[in-house]
Design a protein around this nucleic acid. Structure first.
Lengths: 107, 107
DNA sequence: CAGTATCCGAATGGATACTG
DNA sequence: CAGTATCCATTCGGATACTG
């Protein structure tokens, strides 16, 4: 009667809100692959199969959810760099597990 | 000139083809939670937020990709049971990592 | 019980053009 | 350079009704 409504008993559901996007694990994987931030163009070249529009969208969502930091340098021409936030870096073990599983069973 | 075309350097991309569906990790998580197969109805009740159509679709894809086994018993009324294949069970470490991460950071 | 069929709106994807 | 804007086609997802 008074209990909180149970939406789901599966913890993964909440996580999928953050990284469930079609390209988000891939984007995070690239950002995690090095300490250095990625310029937008480099990120784009790293993922030839994602369109510019979708890449921008997914980055905006990752930024909104606190996983990715976007930094803009008002030079000429403009430079924008993407990197993981401290919270985003906490995903490392998750992405590493995905990575090593894929290497073992899918390559 | 003669090299194979490089589609992506990110191994995770291939894995997302298998489990990238909106509900697939959740379905697999439930199927992994016990040794016993799930009847369709129980699976459906476990995930109140997924529609029957989508649940069926995702199960078909998981079946097609060799992760889930579907067994039909022509009784009256019909009984259908879903369980993981041997290959599907290999995903356990991946799902456990997702699960424990979600419990630590999202609950 | 475990679906399929249908309809429909939303989200996604891709190409192209334009901008600060 | 790093986007935004627009158009358009395809796919996805949810609700409802029907079936062996």
């Amino acid at each position: 009667m008074s209990a909180k409504r149970i939406v789901s008993m599966c913890p993964i559901e909440e996580l999928l809100v953050l990284i469930g996007g079609r390209w988000k694990p891939v984007i995070l994987w690239w950002l995690m692959s090095t300490e250095k931030p990625f310029r937008f163009k480099i990120l784009r070249q790293s993922m030839p199969r994602i369109s510019q529009k979708v890449l921008t969208q997914q980055l905006r969502e990752l930024e909104r959810d606190g996983l990715v930091k976007r930094e803009m340098f008002p030079e000429m021409p403009v430079r924008v760099e993407y990197s993981l936030t401290a919270f985003g870096r906490k995903l490392r073990p998750v992405l590493e597990e995905l990575d090593s599983w894929a290497r073992e069973y899918l390559l």
